[in-house]
């Protein structure tokens, strides 16, 4: 396995469309739930242990070789908000394009053919990690990190937050990121034996309802 491939995959500049999404941060800023770096830290912690954990487990299971179409259904079942399902599929489609260019692989081609409008992004992420020769734990790390790095960079733009403070928020979360990734990889192992029902289904209601409110706004900077 290549450790450097994980850096390529998890790079915030990996051209997979993420820059246009705030991970719910724009709605939280608008509602006054994120006003400073401390709020951002709390928001990211909540997202990491809910949506982040679920995404990490889906990615790890895909990297472990679980049927991606079954995981795609499992992702749908774990995403109540239609707006979030749409965003996840759009991001999955965009990631698919970049992943197929970076790590050409028949498994990616097959999923792209089966889901031309896009599979859920964490599933594509896991499959991309597998194509890059990475482990399920690596895929979980990438998904967990993305679940907090997106909101952090978006908040820098939305609030003109000091970028050093936002980066410090991410650095403080690193130990918890490791724990979430480990839990996700463990769930992926159980998933191989017991099926996708073994994957976590943690939910953050404010992220779900916020995404619906955000999607209805006529004026916004981010797509989600």
């Amino acid at each position: 396995m290549s450790r450097a491939a994980l850096l390529v995959l998890a790079d915030g500049r990996f051209p997979a469309g993420g820059h246009a999404h705030s991970g719910g941060a724009e709605e939280a800023v608008g509602a006054g739930r994120i006003r400073d770096a401390a709020d951002l830290g709390a928001f990211c912690r909540g997202r990491l242990h809910t949506a982040g954990l679920v995404a990490a487990a889906l990615a790890a299971a895909a990297a472990d070789g679980t049927d991606p179409l079954a995981l795609d259904e499992a992702a749908d079942a774990r995403t109540p908000s239609p707006a979030l399902r749409t965003a996840a599929r759009r991001l999955g489609r965009q990631l698919m394009r970049a992943a197929r260019a970076a790590w050409p692989d028949p498994a990616l081609d097959a999923l792209a053919a089966a889901r031309p409008r896009g599979a859920h992004q964490p599933v594509v992420l896991g499959l991309a990690a597998r194509a890059a020769g990475l482990t399920p734990l690596d895929a979980a790390h990438a998904a967990a990190y993305e679940s907090v790095s997106g909101p952090a960079t978006a908040t820098v733009r939305l609030l003109s937050l000091d970028p050093f403070d936002a980066t410090a928020v991410l650095a403080r979360l690193a130990p918890e990121l490791d724990q979430v990734a480990a839990r996700a990889a463990e769930a992926a192992r159980r998933c191989a034996a017991e099926g996708p029902g073994a994957l976590p289904a943690a939910s953050a209601p404010l992220l779900e309802t916020g995404a619906e409110a955000h999607a209805a706004r006529p004026v916004r900077l981010f797509a989600s």
């Binding site: 051209p15 469309g17 993420g18 246009a20 759009r90 965009q94 978006a154 733009r157 939305l158 797509a223």
Partner: peptide
């Protein structure tokens, strides 16, 4: 219409996926 997350140049140059 494509949404660009506060960075129009990123959407046409660095990350053209959308």
């Amino acid at each position: 219409a494509v949404e660009t997350g506060a960075c129009p140049h990123t959407a046409i140059r660095d990350d053209i996926s959308a």
